[in-house]
Design a protein around this nucleic acid. Sequence first.
DNA 1: TGAGTATATTGACATCCTTCAATATACTTG
DNA 2: CAAGTATATTGAAGGATGTCAATATACTCA
Lengths: 127, 127
Amino acid sequence: MIELTEQTKGRTAGCCNPDLAPRIGPDEAQQLSDDLGILANPIRLQILDMLAQRDGHVCVCDLEAALPVKQPTVSHHLRLLRAAGLIDCERRGLWVYYFVQRAALAALRARLLDRFDALGYSTEQHA
Amino acid sequence: MIELTEQTKGRTAGCCNPDLAPRIGPDEAQQLSDDLGILANPIRLQILDMLAQRDGHVCVCDLEAALPVKQPTVSHHLRLLRAAGLIDCERRGLWVYYFVQRAALAALRARLLDRFDALGYSTEQHA
DNA sequence: TGAGTATATTGACATCCTTCAATATACTTG
DNA sequence: CAAGTATATTGAAGGATGTCAATATACTCA
């Protein structure tokens, strides 16, 4: 009689690769998921797009005027993007000017690309 | 007296680029956001990773064994990934085998990269 | 046909996310 | 300091998302 391991206990044979495991661990998966999550919102994407357009700084009232949400919502998304390190701001008098953190954006892009390539092209080159 | 347009009405001058607008419209932003959203979950990332590893098909029981969530949850995420077109499945007898849709993954990757490059490198080349 | 296994679906619950009105804070200008 | 404007924060409401127990469905084998 064969001892069943915890892994295989309760599963019949015949279909299974009992040693299958993700190459990304839970922590890395969570980190990557957070990276993607901060981008996964139409307002935030549009904000990033506008900030990237005007490499010089952009004041909040312009963003507000160009977006289909109210001022507190714009402020909310700006805060999330700032907490994620993707943008930063600078106060000039009455106005606050936001700008993209290109280094952070580039790092995020690199992380996503690494993962994506590992995902899509590990065993075959093309569909 | 100067007529105020709808755009500039209610805003003072002095800080503003009144003609600022996102290059991505609401629809495209929503689509991109959906693309990112389907990836923005640790379980789904790990599922995609495992499916990409074994290019041959993988049965659900293996996924279930390797993931820290229960069977209905695995099934739920598989359904979302399938609805997004990123994976598909095939029944063989009692078991259902899932596999990556490499073409769809490649297309998604391309869409994200396009946007990302437009975002990060429109006016300057490096941080 | 009936018992058993693999996967899917349903329904409920908790948590997070988005949004906004109301309010607070920061700053300028008179 | 007072009044006015720009932005941030708070608190609440509604919707979306993730999870699981229970159950249903699909299939195999005796």
